[in-house]
Design a protein around this nucleic acid. Structure first.
Length: 491
RNA sequence: CGGGAGGUAGUUCAGCCCGGUAGAAUACCUGGUUUGGGACCAGGGGGUCGCAGGUUCGAAUCCUGUCCUCCCGACCA
């Protein structure tokens, strides 16, 4: 069968690709580094997007949209920012094509060169702050709490479906505040929103923390992050929230009059999550049979597969399935009845397992006689015969249970893979043999961080929030340290 | 951007070394039998061999260029 999946043990990377492609989430495209998100994958993203969007609005944010193109000069206004993004920007230099005089189709019209080149946004801080300058005059205009859903382009050398593509979809929040304290509070609030979403909707436990200076967003004073752990023991940054200080306000001259009638630069934040979350979801939960999607964001939560001989049985089962469906739909459950004659039940079972549908109901003629249905859950593969009387309630509870089980499973895996290391030998051994997060002392210097990365490929993923303070010695240099930080190899 | 592998039917691949009418399995269409874990029989349709040049009487096959993908590295969300 062409739909077989490479096992995790055999080739983890290929397993991931197989899931994305054969699970129907995305396809490669004709454009280097760019993917086509297919309807099933997009439905998943839409569920994530809609949930997050509501959470943003519940915390007082509104949506807006800023241009795809950014004048080149904008990007150079904030030194650290341009440093961070210059190497991966797509640049528009011309605005017109013409027929090739040599007959080779169309060519760029050399006459149509832009006065100032346009950058395809890798992120929107610059164009947004250039705009905020006009929107903000006094403290009464603050805070300004805006989010945008958009695509961005970062010209990556090496791409992977969802995890790193040249173009990706995301949201970016950009807020302006009167005080540093308020901006920091916003940064932390949005980090908590992300953690809440990823844990409670994606069933994926995260560690909240702060990035070291070298891992910080280009142009930020502080970068907060949520870090998740994948099944191969590698960490994945699932979201970031930045306290930008007054860096962009100064670069774009955004000032406001405070209550004391004094002019001051505003304080900023930005925060984002992207379609990378889809990749995280796939890698964290799925198995060798296919995707396993958490019920709360699964495009399809329940599928009903009928088993029948002849039209008469099919009609009877169909009628009963309709009742179950309307019961489920009344509770807001996303359900599909698959009575397609072209595939046999066994094929459908395998297919919906591949696609990670959380719950399957099998309804056959034999079941109708006994007034039951077979209910199978995707996460544990457990099957159980359930009386048709209370099946709707049972399914509702089962979906909650699957959601919770998925989180618990991922959490115990994660917790088992946060390991303290107290010597360099132990540190290297853990990285190579166990993987996951390694909690170790670090002397706080960028040099040591870089040296460790050089030697082991492991980076400091974060300094956990509310980290325990304890005296110790740096894992590499032996210099004094006040706390442990989390190291890991990462995506 | 460096190293390696690859691109032939919707999909997975054979054919290429040694140039001579483009193949298999699966999927698809029709009819029939089936249906509790990826059904079976019979018939049928489908490919500018990634793209562009070149060599040749003749190119999927040889040569050059180019695009895309995968894996490994450097860089990064």
């Amino acid at each position: 069968m062409s739909k077989e999946i490479t096992s995790r043990a055999q080739d983890y990377s290929q397993w991931y690709n197989d899931l994305v492609l054969k699970g129907g989430l995305a396809d490669y495209s004709a454009v280097r580094g760019c993917m086509v998100i297919k309807p099933y994958g997009f439905a998943l993203w839409e569920n994530m997007r809609d949930t997050l969007d509501k959470m943003f609005k519940d915390t007082g944010h509104v949506n807006a949209y800023f241009p795809l193109f950014i004048p080149k000069s904008f990007l150079s206004k904030e030194a650290a920012h341009v440093e961070g993004f210059a190497k991966e920007c797509a640049v528009v230099t011309h605005y017109r094509l013409k027929n090739d005089p040599n007959g080779g189709g169309v060519v760029v019209d050399p006459e149509a060169k832009l006065e100032e080149e346009l950058i395809v946004r890798p992120t929107s801080e610059t164009i947004i702050w250039n705009t905020y300058k006009d929107w903000i005059q006094s403290y009464r205009d603050l805070p300004l709490l805006i989010n945008q859903w958009a695509n961005v382009v970062r010209w990556e050398m090496r791409t992977r479906l969802f995890l790193r593509t040249a173009e990706f979809l995301w949201q970016e929040g950009h807020t302006a505040h009167a005080t540093a304290e308020e901006a920091v509070a916003e940064t932390v609030q949005m980090l908590n929103v992300y953690a809440d979403f990823v844990e409670n909707w994606m069933a994926l436990p995260v560690i909240k923390g702060v990035k070291t200076i070298s891992e910080r967003f280009a142009g930020a004073e502080d970068t907060y992050c949520i870090e998740a752990l994948m099944q191969d023991g590698k960490a994945l940054q699932a979201g970031t929230s930045h306290f930008l200080g007054q860096n962009f306000a100064k670069a774009f001259d955004v000032k406001f009059l405070n209550k004391e009638n004094q002019l001051d630069h505003v304080w900023a934040t930005s925060w984002g999550v992207s379609t990378r979350l889809v990749g995280a979801l796939v890698m964290a939960h799925s198995d060798d049979q296919g995707l396993i999607l958490p019920p709360r964001i699964a495009p399809l939560q329940v599928v009903i597969v009928p088993i029948y001989k002849g039209d008469e049985q099919k009609a009877k089962i169909g009628a009963r399935a309709d009742e179950i469906m309307s019961g489920l739909k009344a509770l807001g459950i996303r359900v599909k009845y698959d009575d397609n004659d072209n595939q046999r039940p066994g094929w459908k079972f395998a297919e919906y397992e591949m696609k990670g549908v959380p719950v399957r109901i099998t309804l056959g003629a034999r079941d109708l006689e006994n007034n039951i249905a077979e209910v199978a859950r995707r996460d544990s593969k457990e099957k159980r015969n359930i009386s048709l009387e209370g099946i709707v309630t049972y399914i509702k509870e089962l979906l909650e249970d699957v959601q919770q089980s998925m989180f618990n499973k991922a959490k115990s895996y994660r917790d088992e893979h946060i390991t303290p290391a107290n010597s360099w030998d132990e540190f290297e051994k853990l990285l190579d043999e166990k993987g996951g997060f390694i909690s170790a002392h670090w002397d706080g210097t960028a040099e040591t961080e870089e040296a460790i990365k050089e030697k082991t490929k492991a980076t400091i993923r974060c300094i956990p929030l509310d980290n325990k303070q304890e005296a110790g010695k740096c894992i590499l240099t032996g210099k004094p340290s006040t706390q442990r930080v989390l190291f890991a190899r990462a995506y």
